[in-house]
Amino acid sequence: MEEKKINPFLKLALELGPVILFFVFYGRVKERVFTIGGVEYEGFIVATALFIPLILLTTAIMWKLTGKLSKMQLMTAVLVVIFGGLSVWLNDERFFKMKPTMIYLLFGGLLGIGLLRGQSYLQLVMEEVMPLQPEGWMILTKRLALFFLGLAIANELVWRLMSTDAWVNFKTFGLTAAVFLFFMSQGKLMQTYAVPEDEAES
């Protein structure tokens, strides 16, 4: 099915909306304890329980509007269901906090496997958006694989050594800002290895 184009602001809202709503809702209920079915749940667990159907809803809307989902979107939704579901089922917030670690290890690992095979899996999913020469794709893929590994380590350190409030802030703003800054910092590489317009259009 051919991917349909949607308003970039709508796309951004669908991608970041669930995370922002989780942050806002958690801020309102973090000091509360909810008794459901005779079991006490802290605000973080309740916020997690609401985040799961929300991410599934926005993913479904994205698929409905575009006719296509990236592997990253699908894997993110699956891991949210698995780790978020475990947190709610076992009433243990640690599983949901581990989710970003698993996501970044998975993506970094997949890129690393491609590199060992002499391929850039990043090129396969982003070539149309950002045409680069093969050498540029390999360099960018190596950097991104290492960056994902760094994010996985950072997430582990934050959730294990800091408060839940600190982790929520890190997850909502820190990780998003880090990804944005990473790609901004690759401007020189993208200019150096950019495919000339006449070759990109041919």
Rank of each mutant, 00 (worst) to 15 (best):
M1A: 13
M1W: 09
E2C: 06
E3F: 03
E3H: 07
N7Q: 07
L10A: 06
L14Q: 01
E15P: 07
E15V: 10
L16P: 05
G17K: 08
V19Q: 12
V24T: 07
V24K: 12
F25D: 00
Y26Q: 05
R28G: 13
K30R: 15
R32E: 15
F34T: 11
T35P: 07
V39R: 15
E40G: 06
Y41Q: 10
F44H: 01
I45W: 01
V46T: 02
T48I: 05
T48D: 02
A49D: 04
I52Q: 03
L57T: 09
L57W: 05
A60G: 05
A60N: 00
I61V: 13
W63R: 12
T66Q: 15
T66I: 03
L69E: 06
K71C: 09
K71H: 09
M72D: 14
Q73S: 14
L74N: 06
G85C: 09
S87D: 10
S87R: 08
W89T: 13
W89Y: 15
L90M: 15
F95T: 03
F95V: 07
F96Y: 15
K97Q: 14
K99N: 08
K99T: 04
I103K: 00
G112D: 09
R117Q: 15
Q119H: 12
L124D: 10
I139K: 12
T141H: 11
R143Q: 11
A145H: 07
L146C: 08
L149G: 13
A152N: 00
A152G: 00
A154Y: 01
S163M: 03
D165F: 04
F170V: 02
T172M: 13
F173G: 02
L175V: 11
L175M: 06
T176C: 02
V179F: 12
F180H: 09
M184G: 02
M184D: 03
Q186D: 08
L189V: 05
Q191K: 09
T192V: 07
A194N: 08
D198W: 14
A200I: 03
E201I: 13
S202Y: 08
